[in-house]
């Protein structure tokens, strides 16, 4: 969505003033949707968690639900595992996706087309199907265990129902978006500049470090902030593949709301999650702003 917003915003600056109303109209719909579906509920949640009505019907400023969250070992453990999962996923995504994107950018022929199709495949697999496939393959006595057993090797220590379960699932799920964004960033690296660097004797690592990396650092930031936002608030994969405790904030919020029947607690967790997502979002906004300043 943000990609479209960005494009829509850029229309009036590039074209004649006569087209300005159309540009504004195009922006109006997404802006309205964002205000309606994101900003308003967020403000609502914040105000309902800090301005609370007590048993006598008096409403007053009250931060006790936040005090509870940040003093409760259990909630903090859940926050910690969410941050840990997000960080590990971000690092793994970069390590896995950057080589794929580089390969796709700098090679020609049929094979890269197949690789690209394969890299984008996860986009079309619903995460619930992914989760059950994961259990069949990497789960206990799953396909990997059967294959290992067939060649006389011991079973693996399965990541199912451990914190690594959601990590593996989330990384796989986020590969397409990351690869696509990195690939579009790599599009701005001119072949001439690489050839020029090669001509003066730069090796592959120097070309990557001094020519490619500076050009795509923005895309890396964008790709990471996008996937990090998704991972931080993910629900299905941590719910199906992760341990009962500590749990990520997504399942924790859902459980607090529905199973513990504590809407204020769930909203508090949501506001804490907003806080972290705003931090990640700032990276994205900053890099977009820096890009447009150029």
């Amino acid at each position: 969505m943000s990609e479209f917003v960005e494009k829509a915003v850029s229309v009036p600056t590039e074209t004649a003033a006569g087209r300005r109303p159309i540009g504004l109209l195009l922006v109006a719909i997404p802006v309205f949707l964002v205000i309606w579906l994101v900003i308003w509920p967020a403000i609502n949640a914040i105000s309902r968690t800090i301005w609370r009505t007590d048993a006598d019907g008096h409403s007053s400023f009250d931060l006790s639900s936040y005090a509870f969250f940040f003093s409760d070992r259990y909630s903090l453990d859940n926050l910690a595992v969410t941050l840990w999962t997000t960080l590990v996923c971000a690092v793994l995504l970069l390590v896995i996706c950057l080589p794929i994107a580089l390969y796709l950018r700098f090679s020609h022929g049929r094979l890269p087309a197949y690789v690209q199709a394969l890299a984008i495949l996860p986009m079309f697999v619903p995460s619930i199907i992914l989760a059950f496939a994961f259990i069949r393959v990497l789960g206990p006595n799953g396909m990997v265990d059967i294959l290992l057993n067939a060649v006389g090797l011991p079973k693996i220590r399965t990541p199912y129902l451990t914190p690594w379960g959601p990590v593996i699932g989330l990384v796989w799920d986020n590969i397409p978006l990351t690869v696509l964004i990195l690939l579009s960033g790599l599009g701005s690296v001119a072949n001439q500049s690489i050839e020029a660097a090669r001509d003066v004797g730069a090796n592959t690592i120097r070309v990557f470090w001094h020519i490619i990396l500076p050009r795509i650092s923005n895309s890396i930031l964008v790709a990471l902030s996008f996937s990090v936002l998704g991972i931080f608030s993910s629900f299905t994969l941590p719910y199906l593949l992760g341990p009962a405790s500590p749990e990520m904030l997504g399942p924790f919020m859902q459980r607090t709301l529905r199973d513990v029947q504590d809407p204020i607690g769930a909203m508090t967790q949501a506001v804490v999650a907003f806080g972290f997502c705003i931090l990640f979002g700032l990276f994205y906004v900053r890099s977009v702003a820096r890009n447009r300043g150029k």
């Binding site: 009962a244 199973d259 513990v260 029947q261």
Partner: peptide
Amino acid sequence: WEAAINDGWYRHVAPNVDR
């Protein structure tokens, strides 16, 4: 009871294990 069981189990049974 249901809310108390759901909350209590996660707090007292689920995490108390070194895995």
